[in-house]
Design a protein around this nucleic acid. Structure first.
Lengths: 183, 183
DNA sequence: CATTACATGTAAGGAGTTACATGATTAG
DNA sequence: CTAATCATGTAACTCCTTACATGTAATG
């Protein structure tokens, strides 16, 4: 494998809940799952074709009450099998977390570097925005009952909020350390 | 661009400090920078070739006191220019943080799902190990003086430790929530 | 004497992004 | 009537990984 190909698993996971068109799957990435994964529609349609060849999904094309032709994809038992095998699998090591900003910082040696504070501030704005956005999402998506119905989603939203909270706090602290003149 | 190609920037950044061979660059990814970025040696040699064509680095092949032929790469002013332009650039949006485990959780609906606790525990082990490893790294790499000499590296090690600390705490809390029987 | 580390590549193939391409429907 | 949204693809390109490939030097 060139890269660990998780897209087919995502598609199977989404189709396990209900049959969908490629466009609906694409829309899922614009909303919920888009917080945690990104993909282009071109890749989705390619992967749907491949999954069909593997007989892990089947497709039905037609006019379903509408005037536009659509293709609905449905998961097969083979697809369910593959998905559940993945869902149960353990990881034996963690992937490296690639973060462009972290990489950039690696090359900055001097604490009093002019650029450092500006870069940290730029990053702070981005992560604060994301933090607030995630808090909003949590409020919008989860009432107490919804939490019980989508517990995994609730957990990872929590995690994402914590992560951004840590990120902004770290940036704040780092900015302060830059401004601290004495040793 | 297929993906945001940061490898040439990393190589330029490493070569800006001192001239190195491809093998030495590869070794950098086994140690320090390997905590924050991963790459295969095959890709390094390809990128070095490309950077040479772009005249952002130059190469010198020969026997430098040793019996083995080596090729040393040196950054040019063009290379420095490109690197510094990147180093000064601001991001206008954050990339999605792709985490296989987070993705997997997204599909788990039920709080009392058998699998959930085992998956969380597996993940906890991995992140605890990483957390301890990073703490060790911090101890090994940074005395007070070294911190002033490699401030960026110091900051991102701090961040990585905080991140793993958050991750393990979140997993612990999530495990507790699973075990909590009442609503 | 065998294994590990040093040292440098090429080839094949999959994964992801960007751009190209087309056409219908709906909302303002 | 125009723009946005719906809906589905193909093509080109490049990044990344895995595997193949070769040879020397040092270490035990």
């Amino acid at each position: 494998m060139a890269q660990k190909n998780l897209l087919p698993l995502i598609l199977l996971g989404l189709l396990r809940e209900k049959s969908k068109t490629g466009y609906e799957l694409k829309k899922d990435f614009d909303t919920e799952i888009g917080e945690f994964w990104s993909v282009k529609h071109s890749q989705i349609y390619l992967e749907l074709k491949r999954l069909t060849e593997l007989k892990e999904i089947t497709s039905t094309t037609g006019y379903f009450g509408s005037k536009v032709e659509k293709t609905y994809y449905e998961i097969t038992s083979l697809g369910v099998e593959r998905f559940e095998k993945w869902e149960l699998s353990f990881q034996d090591e963690l992937a490296v977390n690639k973060d462009e900003f972290v990489l950039k910082l690696y090359f900055i040696k001097d604490r009093h570097d002019e650029r450092l504070k500006r870069l940290l501030n730029n990053q702070y704005e981005l992560h604060l925005e994301k933090f607030l956005h995630l808090k909003q999402r949590m409020n919008d998506v989860f009432s107490q009952t919804d939490k019980e119905k989508n517990f995994g989603h609730y957990l990872i939203l929590n995690h994402a909020i914590n992560r951004e909270s840590e990120y902004t706090k770290w940036l704040k602290d780092s900015i302060a350390e830059c401004e601290n003149k004495k040793q």
